[in-house]
Computed example of a mutant assay.
Amino acid sequence: MYLYDKDASAGMDALYEQHAGAIFDYLRHRTPTRQDAEDILLDVFTAAMEDRKFAHLAEREQVSWLWRVARNKAVDAFRRLRVRQCLTLEQISEMIDDDHLLDPERAALQLDYVAQVQQLMTHLSPLQQEIIQLRFGYELRCPEIAQVLGKREQAIYTALSRALNLLRSVHTRQ
Results as ranks from 00 to 15, higher is better:
Leu41Lys: 11
Leu42His: 06
Leu42Lys: 07
Asp43Ser: 11
Asp43His: 04
Asp43Tyr: 05
Val44Leu: 01
Val44Thr: 01
Val44Gln: 04
Val44Phe: 03
Phe45Lys: 00
Phe45Pro: 01
Phe45Arg: 00
Thr46Asn: 11
Ala47Cys: 00
Ala47Met: 07
Ala48Tyr: 04
Met49Ala: 13
Met49Gly: 13
Met49Ser: 15
Glu50Cys: 10
Asp51Arg: 05
Asp51Ser: 11
Arg52Phe: 05
Arg52His: 08
Lys53Arg: 11
Lys53Val: 03
Lys53Thr: 04
Phe54Asp: 09
Phe54Trp: 08
His56Lys: 07
His56Trp: 10
His56Val: 08
Ala58Tyr: 02
Ala58Gly: 05
Glu59Lys: 04
Arg60Asn: 10
Glu61Cys: 05
Glu61Gln: 11
Glu61Thr: 07
Glu61Trp: 00
Glu61Lys: 12
Glu61Pro: 07
Gln62Arg: 13
Val63Thr: 07
Ser64Phe: 10
Ser64Leu: 09
Ser64Asn: 14
Trp65Glu: 03
Leu66Gly: 03
Trp67Arg: 07
Arg68Ser: 11
Arg71Met: 09
Asn72Gln: 15
Asn72Ile: 05
Lys73Ser: 09
Ala74Lys: 12
Ala74Asn: 07
Val75Asp: 11
Val75Ile: 13
Val75Glu: 13
Val75Leu: 09
Val75Met: 06
Val75Ser: 12
Asp76Glu: 12
Asp76Lys: 12
Ala77Glu: 15
Phe78Thr: 13
Arg79Met: 12
Arg80Lys: 14
Leu81His: 14
Arg82Leu: 11
Val83Ser: 12
Gln85Tyr: 05
Gln85Asp: 07
Cys86Tyr: 12
Leu87Gln: 04
Leu87Asn: 07
Thr88Phe: 05
Leu89Ile: 06
Leu89His: 14
